[in-house]
Design a protein around this nucleic acid. Structure first.
Lengths: 250, 250
DNA sequence: CGGACAGTTGAATGAATTCAACAATCGTGG
DNA sequence: CCACGATTGTTGAATTCATTCAACTGTCCG
C-alpha cells in the first residue's frame, strides 16, 4: 500500500513566471491557436496589462466583481466555482495553461463565478475594454474568441451530461481520462500525472461525496486499472477505464 | 382534482409564421438586443437564409451534422440534448423565441448537441459563413455574439450547480421560477403558463425521474404553492416556491 | 371507438450519502 | 531538524433520498 509503484514519477515541472513578451510566451499559441502576424502580436502585447502570480488558494476574482479583465493562465492551475445563496459550492471546472477565465462575465459585466488558484499560478490579465478594439482590428482574434467560448459551452455540456446521467463510477473514470487527454494535448504523459486538486475538490466537481471518490479510487487501484499514491496517479489500463466510463449503463 | 381552478387559463397565443423581414420580426430585438441602424438591418437580412417551420418532434440538427447555420427561434420552443455513447440522453436546455441555437459548434465545426422542436416552431437559419463577414462590418454584432455566448455559459453554470448540488425539490421549484422569469421577460404572465414539455422532459432536464417530477408537482399543489392541470400551470405562492428553491438546504 | 401515450401513485430497492473514527501527511514554528 | 497541530485522505456502518418496478387512470388523436 506504500507508494513505491509510483514513487519514481517526476512532478510536473514548474514553468518560469517572469513577465515576458507574448511572442515568447510558451502558451500564447494555446490562448490563441491561430498564429498571428508579428504586427498583430505587438498589438496583442499592448492590451495585456498585468502579469500576476497567485499562490495556492488565492482568489483571482469572485461573483459580482466588475468584469475588468480576462484572465489567461500561463502556468499552474485554477478552479472555478459557483454557489447557491445558502453557500453550497459547485466547482465548474479545473483550468490549466492556455485557458481563459471569466468569459461568462461579458453578458452582465460582472463575474458570475469564483476563480481560485490550486497551486502557484502565473496569469496574464487582459483588459476587457480593449478586447473589443483589438478584435475589430484583428478579425482572427474575433473569430478565435467565438471558438473559445464555443468550446467552453461544449465542455459545459459534457459536465451537464456527466452530472445528470452518469453513475459515480463512470464520473470518476471519465474524469481521469479527461485529465489524461488534457495532459497529452500539452505534451505531458497521459498516463502519469499529479492531481493538483484535493479529493474533496474532485468529488465536488463530479457531484459526488469526497468519501465516494476515495472509495472508488481504492477500488480502481485494487482492480489494477490505476496506481495512486497521494496525488500521483498512473493510469495502467486505459481500456478498462474507458469501459467503465461508458459501459456502466445501469 | 379536476382542472377547474386553471381551466380558464388562456393558452399562449401562437405567433404568425410567415417569412417576414427582420425589421418586422417581433423577436429580432431579442436575438440582437442592441438596436441596429436601418442599413445594418438590411445587411442582416441578407445573411438570413431560410425561414423554416418545424413541427412537434422534428429535428433541427443533431450531433455531428456540419455547422452550416445558426438557428434563431422566432416562435415556438426547442429542446437541446446531448447523449452518452450508450444512448442515455440529457436535455441541456429548453429554448424559446429570440434564442440562438448551435453556438457550441463554432469550435469543432459540427454540432455537439441535438435540437428538436417541442411544438410548431418558426426558425430563422443564418449562414455561419456569413456571420464572420457580418460581424466584421457591424462591430455591434460581434460584441453581441460574445454577450450571447457569455450568457449561454452563465446559464450552463446555473444548470451545473442545480444538477450537482440541489435536491429534487429545489430543482423543480427553481425550474418553475425560471420559466416564470422567462415568460415575464417576454411580457407573458409570470404566474400562468403552459408547459410545452412533458414530465419526462422536465425530469430528464433536471436530472430526476419522471415519477419524482409528478410526485413533487402533486406535493406542491397540495401545499397550495401551485395549481396544475395537465400542462397548464399557475404559480400561486411565489414566495413559498422561492423558499423551496433556496432554503431547502439539507 | 380504441390504441397509444402521458401522467399519477404506491411499494420495494438501492446507490450514494452522512456520520464517525481513524491514519497519514504536510507545513510551520520552536 | 523535529514535533505537533491542522489538513487531507481512508474506511466502515447506518441512513436516506430518489429510483425502479408496477399497476392504474385519463386523454388525445387517428
Amino acid at each position: 500500500m506504500t507508494g513505491s509503484k509510483v514513487a519514481s514519477l517526476r512532478p510536473v515541472p514548474e514553468l518560469p513566471c517572469e513577465p515576458i513578451a507574448c511572442a515568447q510566451c510558451g502558451v500564447y499559441q494555446l490562448c490563441l491557436p491561430l498564429g498571428l502576424f508579428e504586427a498583430d502580436l505587438s498589438l496583442l502585447e499592448s492590451v495585456v496589462r498585468r502579469k500576476a502570480t497567485y499562490k495556492r488558494g488565492q482568489l483571482l476574482f469572485r461573483p459580482g466583481d466588475r468584469f475588468d479583465f480576462i484572465y489567461a493562465i500561463r502556468s499552474g492551475s485554477v478552479k472555478t466555482s459557483v454557489q447557491t445563496p445558502d453557500g453550497r459550492v459547485q466547482i465548474t471546472g479545473f483550468h490549466v495553461a492556455g485557458e481563459l477565465l471569466g468569459l461568462s462575465a461579458f453578458d452582465s459585466g460582472r463575474y458570475s463565478c469564483e476563480a481560485r488558484a490550486l497551486e502557484t499560478t502565473s496569469i496574464c490579465k487582459v483588459e476587457t475594454g480593449r478586447v473589443e478594439e483589438l478584435a475589430q482590428r484583428i478579425p482572427a482574434i474575433q473569430y478565435q474568441m467565438l471558438r473559445i467560448m464555443s468550446g467552453h459551452i461544449r465542455r459545459d455540456e459534457d459536465l451537464i451530461l456527466l452530472l445528470g446521467k452518469r453513475s459515480a463510477e463512470e464520473r470518476l473514470a471519465e474524469y481521469l481520462l479527461g485529465l489524461s487527454r488534457r495532459f497529452a494535448a500539452r505534451n505531458y504523459s497521459p498516463t502519469q500525472f499529479r492531481l493538483s486538486m484535493s479529493r474533496g475538490d474532485i468529488g465536488n466537481y463530479l457531484g459526488i461525496a469526497e468519501e465516494t471518490v476515495s472509495r472508488l479510487l481504492s477500488r480502481f487501484q485494487n482492480a489494477g486499472f490505476i496506481a495512486i499514491d497521494r496525488r500521483q496517479v498512473r493510469l495502467i489500463d486505459l481500456g478498462q477505464l474507458e469501459a467503465m466510463a461508458r459501459i456502466n449503463a445501469a
